[in-house]
């Protein structure tokens, strides 16, 4: 996978027309506006990447700040050898792994959670919300029950909008393995919210 390597010339393009990599180079040259635009584009998807794992708000805040701090401190030596988004989520995922190690948490396998997933499908919700709203609420709960590796693949694809190749790069895993995790995630979520049959990883 290769990317064109942009060079920041300081003036050429309006901020709205610049790629993430060009914005990052502009910020590395001292252009704060470039960072503001970059941050505006990525702040909410990154925030949701943390909170939709069921993480406490304080913890998510801490991790989000840590990610952006690393981006800021790495700016002077930034080389656009890969997409900025891939790099950003690689930092985020590394921090998550550190967090898990510190907390002595283990990634759970889907088989361990099958009962919990099934129980979500049968959960009752108030009659006042629509069917779509009920499914959405179920999905939120089910995401929290999904195994970490499947959840990572699902969030990176759906939230960050990355391709499966980019997801594989971030996960440090093979493309086939990531595709497989994606399929399991979809099957498990569908089953959990009552849309299809469950799958094992």
């Amino acid at each position: 996978m290769s990317f064109a390597q942009p060079r920041y010339d300081g003036t050429s393009l309006a901020l709205g027309q610049q790629s993430d990599e060009e914005l990052m180079l502009a910020y590395a040259a001292g252009d704060l506006q470039a960072f503001c635009q970059l941050y505006e584009q990525h702040k909410n998807p990154l925030w949701r990447f943390f909170v939709r794992r069921g993480m406490a708000t304080e913890c998510a805040e801490e991790l989000v700040q840590e990610v952006w701090q690393r981006v800021i401190t790495s700016a002077p030596g930034y080389q656009p050898s890969a997409r900025f988004t891939t790099w950003l989520y690689q930092i985020a995922r590394n921090l998550l792994a550190d967090q898990h190690r510190k907390a002595h948490r283990r990634f759970t396998l889907v088989s361990d959670e099958s009962e919990a997933l099934e129980s979500m499908a049968s959960q009752d919700y108030p009659d006042t919300i629509t069917e779509q709203g009920r499914l959405a609420l179920r999905l939120k709960h089910c995401l929290g029950k999904l195994p970490a590796l499947q959840l990572d693949v699902f969030l990176l694809k759906e939230e960050a909008g990355l391709t499966m190749e980019q997801v594989a790069t971030i996960m440090g895993a093979g493309l086939d393995a990531c595709k497989s995790r994606w399929r399991y995630a979809v099957a498990n979520l569908s089953k959990c919210i009552g849309m299809g049959a469950p799958a094992d990883d």
Partner: peptide
């Protein structure tokens, strides 16, 4: 269905802190 979920946004005080860090960083750069 996932895209129809409510979009939680980054808290404003977090944004302010990060942008302040970026400002300092830009000065250093």
């Amino acid at each position: 269905l996932y895209q129809s979920l409510d979009k939680e946004n980054s808290p404003e005080h977090v944004d302010a802190r990060i942008l302040a860090m970026a400002k300092q960083g830009a000065l250093v750069h």
